[in-house]
Computed example of a mutant assay.
Amino acid sequence: MTSLPDAFRSAARGAGATADDADLDAAAQYLIGRWTEPQRHYHDVSHLAAVLEVIDRFAHLTPNPDRVRLAAWLHDAVYDPRALGDANERDSAEFAAVMLNGLGAPDEVAAEVARLVNLTAGHATEEDDPDGELLCDADLSILAADEERYAAYTDAIRREYAHVPDDAFRAGRSRVLTELLKLPSIYRLAPIHAEWEERARANLTAELELLA
Rank of each mutant, 00 (worst) to 15 (best):
M1H: 12
T2P: 05
S3I: 02
L4D: 09
L4C: 05
P5H: 09
F8M: 03
R9E: 14
R9C: 10
A11W: 09
A12D: 01
R13D: 03
G14V: 00
G16Y: 15
G16F: 15
D20G: 08
D23E: 15
D25Q: 15
D25L: 10
A26S: 12
I32M: 11
W35N: 05
E37C: 13
E37I: 07
P38I: 09
V45S: 03
V45C: 07
I55K: 02
I55P: 04
D56S: 09
R57M: 00
R57N: 00
F58D: 06
F58N: 01
L61Q: 02
P63R: 02
P63T: 00
P63Y: 01
P63F: 14
N64S: 08
P65G: 07
D66R: 00
R67Y: 00
A71G: 01
A72R: 03
W73N: 09
H75E: 08
A77V: 11
V78K: 00
P81K: 10
R82Y: 12
R82P: 00
A83K: 06
L84R: 10
L84G: 07
G85Q: 06
D86C: 13
A87R: 10
A87N: 02
N88G: 00
E89Q: 02
D91T: 12
E94N: 11
E94I: 02
E94W: 11
F95W: 01
F95Q: 07
M99K: 02
N101F: 03
G104K: 07
P106M: 12
P106W: 08
P106D: 03
D107R: 11
E112G: 14
A114R: 00
R115C: 11
R115I: 01
L116Y: 09
L116E: 10
A121K: 04
A121W: 07
G122S: 13
A124T: 11
A124Y: 13
T125F: 06
E126N: 12
D128H: 13
D128L: 05
D129E: 13
D131F: 04
E133V: 04
L135D: 04
D137M: 04
A138Q: 05
D139S: 01
L140C: 10
S141P: 06
S141H: 06
S141C: 07
A144C: 15
Y150P: 13
Y150I: 08
A152C: 14
A152Y: 07
R159P: 15
R159G: 08
A162R: 10
A162W: 00
H163W: 14
D166R: 03
G172W: 12
V176M: 12
V176G: 01
L177K: 09
L180N: 14
L180S: 08
L181G: 15
K182G: 14
K182W: 15
L189T: 01
L189M: 12
A190I: 13
E195L: 09
W196G: 07
W196S: 08
E197I: 00
E197A: 06
R199Y: 10
N203C: 08
N203P: 14
N203D: 12
L204G: 00
T205C: 07
L211C: 03
L211F: 04
A212Q: 08
